[in-house]
Design a protein around this nucleic acid. Structure first.
Lengths: 117, 117
DNA sequence: TTGACATATTCCCATATCGGTATATATTGA
DNA sequence: TCAATATATACCGATATGGGAATATGTCAA
């Protein structure tokens, strides 16, 4: 076996920086391929290939408009990543550290004060 | 050139599901390698190799304890991922959609009502 | 020192990748 | 129908991968 396909899931698709750049651009609205080619300093075939990967994992949608193809962000496909990584937020956010303290306190009070520490 | 190394950054390191599992386990506290080997259904060498990748991108820290090596999560290394993906939260969270409406309203009022729409 | 245990490293192989280049497919207009 | 434009696909080469198996390194205990 080798590394999982880039089309395996959003995690793999998004590991490529160029693809994140593409998504960042699409966050501003629908774009044609050549439009993206110009903004990224990348050749047209590579952009088309990246877009294909993004399409296969559902991160973008396409629409035909004459001879152009307009790509559009499908944000919700990023939710699994957000959900996973958010559960770690407490490890760096002071806000969550304080919340932890409060919850620990509440729990202690709730379990009765037979103070075993 | 080929795909970016798994050790290139947290995005690439975390694209591998096994490594996410390892991090999930370490979220519960320090663990020795064999401990992880048992919980994941994975051979010891592969676990060591995954841990190496995680160490190289700073996602885990190690500590020697006799003949064991205790690995520990370093959550803040996930912050770049969280930061990136959070900016897309508005695309699926109703909460943020409503916030957008409010902000649009405020902006309109703030810019004066010379209603050019 | 020897043996047992814990972990890391090395070697192997099949595979998918990314960029480059060339070409194929579509759509429009003359 | 032919040329121009827009996009997708095919082919190439170098490379790192992940699991498997074998082995190396390190540490403790007797």
């Amino acid at each position: 076996m080798a590394r999982a396909a880039t089309t395996a899931d959003a995690f793999n698709a998004v590991a490529e920086p160029r693809r994140r750049e593409i998504l960042d651009l699409l966050a501003g609205g629908e774009r044609a391929v050549n439009d993206l080619v110009e903004e990224l300093a990348l050749a047209q075939p590579q952009v088309s290939k990246h877009l294909r990967v993004l399409r296969e994992v559902g991160l973008v949608d396409v629409r035909d408009e004459g001879r152009q193809r307009l790509y559009r962000l499908n944000g919700p496909a990023l939710k699994p990543i957000h959900d996973w990584v958010s559960s770690y937020e407490r490890t760096w956010s002071e806000r969550f550290e304080r919340l932890d303290v409060v919850l620990r306190d509440l729990k202690r009070k709730d379990e009765g004060d037979d103070g075993d520490d």
